[in-house]
Simulated assay, not measured.
Amino acid sequence: MMRGNRNMGNMMKQMKKMEKQLAEEQKAMEAKTYVGVSPDEMVKATFTGKREMTDLSIDPKAIDPDDPDMLSDLILAAVNSALKQIDEDGKQTLGKYTNNMPGM
């Protein structure tokens, strides 16, 4: 009976250690900067790992008063590029903790 308690105690220590490592890596990821660019690089969108946009840079050549839809498309492409980078980084960084957990 004592052996079962010891194993449970060791398992709890490992879980706490893993939770701490996960929190540290998540915090580090949130501090990173992700820059998405449109295919022609005329629009750049900068995000934090918390998915907060911190900057949007638009090349004046992208502003065509006769074609506002083009600018919208460029902005969407840049924003989606940055968000995709955040998602991929999250899967790579945090996935090692969540892949083996039930329900994740």
Rank of each mutant, 00 (worst) to 15 (best):
Lys84Cys: 07
Asp66Lys: 15
Pro39Phe: 01
Thr33Ala: 06
Asn100His: 15
Asn99His: 12
Thr54Ser: 05
Lys32Asp: 08
Met12Gly: 10
Ile75Gln: 09
Met70Glu: 11
Met15Asn: 07
Ala82Arg: 01
Pro68Tyr: 11
Val35Lys: 02
Lys91His: 12
Thr93Tyr: 03
Glu88His: 05
Asn80Gln: 11
Gly36Pro: 00
Ala31Leu: 09
Asn7Tyr: 15
Thr98Glu: 04
Met15Ser: 09
Ser38Gln: 03
Ala31Asp: 13
Thr33Gly: 05
Asp69Tyr: 08
Ala62Gly: 08
Val35Cys: 02
Met53Tyr: 10
Asp89Met: 10
Pro68Thr: 06
Lys50Asp: 14
Gly95Glu: 01
Glu88Arg: 06
Leu56Glu: 02
Lys96Met: 07
Gln92Thr: 15
Met11Thr: 10
Met101Val: 12
Ala77Phe: 00
Ile63Asp: 07
Leu83Cys: 06
Gln21Glu: 15
Leu71Tyr: 07
Asp67Asn: 15
Phe47Trp: 06
Met53Phe: 09
Glu24Ser: 13
Tyr97Phe: 14
Ile75Cys: 06
Gly49Thr: 05
Gln85Phe: 03
Gln26Gly: 08
Thr98Ala: 06
Arg51Asn: 15
Glu24Lys: 15
Gln21Gly: 10
Leu83Ala: 02
Gln26Ala: 13
Met11Gln: 14
Ser81Asn: 12
Met101Ala: 11
Glu88Lys: 08
Leu94Ala: 06
Tyr34Ala: 00
Tyr97Asp: 06
Lys32His: 06
Gln21Met: 12
Ser81Gln: 02
Met18Gln: 14
Asp89Cys: 11
Asn80Phe: 03
Lys32Trp: 03
Thr46Ser: 11
Asn80Arg: 05
Asp87Ala: 09
Pro102Thr: 10
Thr54Asn: 05
Ala78Gly: 04
Leu56Gly: 02
Pro39Lys: 03
Pro102Asp: 13
Leu76Met: 11
Pro68Phe: 11
Pro65His: 09
Gln26Cys: 08
Glu24Gln: 14
Asp59Phe: 04
Ile86Lys: 04
Val43Gln: 01
Lys50Ala: 14
Lys44Gly: 00
Asp87Lys: 09
Ala82Gln: 04
Glu88Met: 09
Thr54Asp: 03
Lys16Asp: 13
Met12Trp: 11
Gln85Val: 07
Lys44Trp: 00
Lys91Ser: 15
Gln85Ile: 01
Asp87Met: 10
Thr46Val: 09
Pro60Trp: 06
Thr98His: 04
Met42Thr: 08
Val79Gly: 00
Pro102Val: 07
